[in-house]
Amino acid sequence: MDNTFARCEDLVFSYDDESRDVLCDVSLSFKRGEFTAVLGHNGCGKSTFAKHLNAILLPCGGSVYVDGIDTKDEERLYDIRQRVGMVFQNPDNQIVATIVEEDVAFALENLGVPPEEIRERVDEALKSVGMYKYRMHSPHQLSGGQKQRVAIAGIIAMRPECIVLDEPTAMLDPIGRREVLKTVKRLNREYGITIILITHYMEEAAMCGRVIVMDKGKVLLDDVPKEVFSKVELLKSVGLDVPQVTELVYELNKYGLGLDQHIITEEECTEALIKLLS
């Protein structure tokens, strides 16, 4: 079977009130089980792109296929949304119920899933994000990271194949960020869920399998993190950063030290510095 989960071909999009194309000829595909980060400054089109993956937005030109379904096929809208779930930036805007487990059950109730099965799926979803023991809590008693995990559980309960997260950690403190990332990584590893993570944190992108950099509605780079982050000048020119360790290597190489510009983790940097100083 074809291993491609989602694919877009020459995707073009513009909002009604603007003449400029927000997305111009974007062609990308995502494999099942892939963990991809999407980077780009505000306004580069990355959120607009993400919203095409579960038919919140429809292409003005080109096509998007999710699990072989054309997103323009209105009759298959539920099939698409069931396969691709989205998590947004602000946890408070995504929680509708007054009890955690009711919130997770919300979509299932709407889909008319039988009660026994709802119970089962909700429990499983809450366990998978480590929030089972909070199932009877009221969402306002939770921290931002916990709320974000509840939002993710609501999607897991739908048993999607893919989760698109649009800056899920932007409003969280370091503990909340760590919790959410750990959860997302586990869902990818243990359940094989395809993850597309939009982020401004370069360290988060560095741990993904693939990094896509967008600029002005186009795909600028699409490669493994090591290759993407080695292009320090290009990234800075489009308003992005690189991890601190990569930046240090880049700065040192200006002195002709010839260090490996593919260093993106603390461990690699530590080893390189030990060699340099010994």
């Binding site: 360790v245 240090l248 700065e251 040192l252 510095l273 030990i274």
Partner: peptide, 27 residues
Amino acid sequence: QITRVFNELKSRGIDLGEEVYTVKFAK
């Protein structure tokens, strides 16, 4: 991140004698 790297260096016996907390200073 840069502070973590230099702390690791210290724990492995390479003490540079200064606290490092910015890339500029590290360089």
